[in-house]
């Protein structure tokens, strides 16, 4: 009796869903036809997302709770327990977070004046500057690392200049393969991306208000502080969130300059060691963390969605 009652409750909902599907497949009204078009337009992306994104990620979650190393069998949380209790992994997590946070702050702090100069000042050769600042966006992390070797490595130009003046051995002065060198390599990759986002924000700043402030005697600093800054603040928040994501995802740079053990590098080492459950758990934690803070960041701040 109760079962049939429940079925009777469920039935209209099921029928509704079936009718929805039916109207998409065999549309009768213009509204139905539009829905079918939207479904058709979204379908290719959805297929790619499921085949290349959702299903592989589910497999990662399954292996992370597997009892066996190479097969998905049983259920255990031991990989996650290792991540939480082992001080080694806690230190890796700590390294990852402070390093990405600090490089993000420095990169965005540099990107604000760069975007300001490019958008507000009439500089000679402005188009060239835009091209030059954007060029490193298409360089992979390994190339960014090589750029740091060129400047600060054992053979590096700046290393040799400093060594010549200080009368020291170049290898003692070289900083490329050190944590500060890695820091500069991160900033090399992140500044152009942060600048790209902030230039977009600057393009929407209302100039009339700035001109009014200037006309009323505000200094450039006051104009920036009280008129420009409030307008670009959502852009800065967005740039912070997305540059932080970039910083967390960096991996190639770390392959060349292996001086700091962060999450992505450790993940690769687990893979090489064949520790699939731990690697899977690390990937899952990473994905959930990044997804979570991006969603929260974009939901609860006025940041703009973008790359």
């Amino acid at each position: 009796m109760s079962t049939s009652g429940r079925i009777a409750d469920v039935l209209p909902a099921v029928r509704g869903a079936v009718e929805d599907l039916g109207s998409v497949a065999v549309p009768t009204t213009e509204r139905d036809r539009e829905r079918r078009r939207i479904a058709a337009l979204c379908a290719p992306f959805a297929v790619l997302l499921v085949v290349a994104g959702v299903y592989p990620l589910l497999e990662v979650v399954r292996i992370s709770v597997s009892v066996e190393r190479f097969e998905t069998v049983g259920f255990t949380l031991s990989a996650y327990r290792t991540l939480v209790t082992d001080p080694y992994y806690r230190r890796v997590a700590f390294n990852t977070l402070w390093f990405a946070a600090l490089t993000t702050l420095v990169s965005v702090a540099l990107a604000v004046p760069i975007a300001h100069a490019l958008e507000k000042y009439d500089l000679p050769g402005e188009g060239l500057f835009v091209t030059l600042v954007s060029f490193p966006i298409s360089l992979p992390g390994i190339v960014a690392a090589f750029m740091m070797l060129v400047l600060f490595g054992n053979n590096g130009v700046l290393t040799n200049v400093v060594a010549t003046f200080a009368g020291a051995n170049p290898t003692d002065v070289a900083v490329a393969v050190s944590v500060p060198g890695l820091f500069l390599a991160f900033v090399y990759s992140m500044v152009p991306r942060a600048t790209l986002i902030l230039r977009g924000t600057y393009a929407e700043v209302e100039e009339a208000a700035e001109e009014a402030a200037q006309a009323l005697g505000a200094t450039p600093l006051q104009t920036f502080r009280y008129v420009t800054f409030p307008q670009i603040r959502p852009g800065i928040t967005g740039a912070l969130i997305l540059t932080f994501r970039t910083g967390l995802a960096i991996f190639g740079t770390l392959i060349v300059i292996q001086t700091l053990l962060v999450w992505t590098l450790q993940l690769d080492r687990e893979l090489s060691a064949g520790a699939f459950p731990v690697a899977g758990a690390m990937a899952t934690v990473y994905f959930v963390f990044v997804f979570g803070f991006t969603a929260l960041g974009l939901r609860y701040t006025s940041a703009e969605v973008g790359l």
Binding site: L57, V60, R245, A249, Y286
Partner: peptide
């Protein structure tokens, strides 16, 4: 349409970084 914001967010945000997607592909 309903859920437009979600479709937009999913399609313009790079959701998975390369290393994670690599691990996922190896498994799947």
């Amino acid at each position: 349409f309903r859920g437009k914001e979600w479709v937009n967010a999913v399609s313009v945000l790079p959701l998975v970084p390369g290393v994670i997607l690599g691990v996922a592909f190896l498994r799947a």
